[in-house]
Amino acid sequence: MMNGVRKLVTSPWLALAFRLYIGGLFVFAAMYKINYAAEFATTIASYRLVPYWAVNALAVFMPWTEIICGALLILGIRVRSVCTIIVALLSVFTVAIFINLLRDAPISCGCFHTIEDPISWWTILRDVSWIAMTVHVYRFDAVLQTDQLFLGKLKRIHS
């Protein structure tokens, strides 16, 4: 029983599901932000954590990093590096939300759109679960990777 659960939990197919989910999530989230960079800048500013001069730049660059990461994750390219970036981004978001929760700031997450429900502990929980999924992908992802397709054979080269 435990073995079956362990097998299920550590399954590369579960990791693939998580990978596609997180990848799609990031692509989806980034698309709105790319379209409406000014709104994303407002959102970042509403968190009151990023210095005045860096807000706009962050709003311009971050969605593109997200969409690249999402796309690479879906395609299975450099999965672990991408996971690292995604975990870092999600961690930053989570910490930011956590701080603003403590501040009792009346802001929405801005994760997908400018106007959303205000941040809550559920938001934290959601982000943490995404982090967990990403870690799972990092640890167990092994199937349907483009890298595997193109570079798998090179792994077999011996000196």
């Binding site: 660059f61 971050m62 990093t65 690249i68 672990r80 590096s81 996971c83 970036i85």
Partner: peptide
């Protein structure tokens, strides 16, 4: 490719910066 690499991370971020800036 199969491990987290600072080079890849940097490249992805750099790509984000460049694409974001251009867009």
């Amino acid at each position: 490719v199969w491990r987290a690499s600072w080079l890849d991370v940097s490249l992805i971020i750099l790509a984000g910066v460049i694409l974001g800036g251009l867009f």
